[in-house]
Computed example of a mutant assay.
Amino acid sequence: MEPPAWDRKELTVGELSARSGAAVSALHFYERKGLITSRRTTGNQRRYARSTLRRVALIRIAQRVGIPLAEIKTALDNLPNGRNPTKKDWEKLSRAWRSELDERIRKLQQIRNEFTDCIGCGCLSLNRCSLANTHDELGTHGEGPRRLIEAESA
């Protein structure tokens, strides 16, 4: 198999996969979800604009930090004329997602810090829970780990 020519304006799905690190199945999925587009050759093969690499990179980075695909799609759909994101676009998106990521980090730190001593008080009665949740007071708020849920609205 001949190595891909990265200077071409269009890439096959295999070349896009090799260059982006995304599996072919993931690229097909992104296309079905409207995150990326391709054109079809007369032989019905997909061809992607080389600039799709930037779009796939943004998708993969955003997914890696936990941004839902629907949110990524909305962000990409807001780019003028469906163009690929520029450095300025990425800066704007990353600022918009920063508070959401900071909140996720805060929740993960809370879970990490309380993981050994408490399971979030549902209550499943570890020794420490009687101190953090005397008489299962948090149980009146519903089932599940109430301390983590309450932290979300705090």
Rank of each mutant, 00 (worst) to 15 (best):
M1V: 14
M1L: 14
E2D: 11
E2C: 10
P4R: 07
D7N: 12
D7A: 08
K9R: 13
T12D: 04
G14F: 09
L16C: 07
S17K: 07
A18S: 13
S20P: 05
A22S: 07
A22Q: 05
A22V: 13
A23I: 14
A23C: 06
V24P: 02
V24I: 12
H28F: 11
F29M: 10
Y30M: 02
E31L: 03
R32M: 12
K33W: 06
K33A: 12
I36L: 04
T37L: 09
R40E: 05
R40T: 04
R40L: 07
T41Y: 08
T42Y: 15
N44W: 11
R55P: 00
A57P: 00
I59V: 06
I59L: 01
R60W: 07
I61Y: 13
I61P: 04
G66D: 04
P68K: 04
L69K: 01
I72H: 01
T74C: 11
L76V: 00
L76N: 02
L79D: 03
N81Q: 13
G82R: 02
G82W: 04
T86S: 06
K88Q: 15
D89S: 08
E91N: 11
L93D: 05
W97F: 00
R98Q: 11
S99F: 08
K107C: 10
L108N: 09
T116Y: 08
T116L: 13
C118V: 00
I119P: 14
G122W: 00
G122P: 02
C123P: 06
L126D: 15
L126E: 14
S130A: 10
A132P: 08
N133P: 03
N133A: 03
D136K: 11
E137D: 13
G139D: 03
G139N: 05
G142A: 08
E143T: 11
R146D: 00
R146M: 02
R147G: 01
A151I: 03
A151S: 09
A154I: 15
A154E: 15
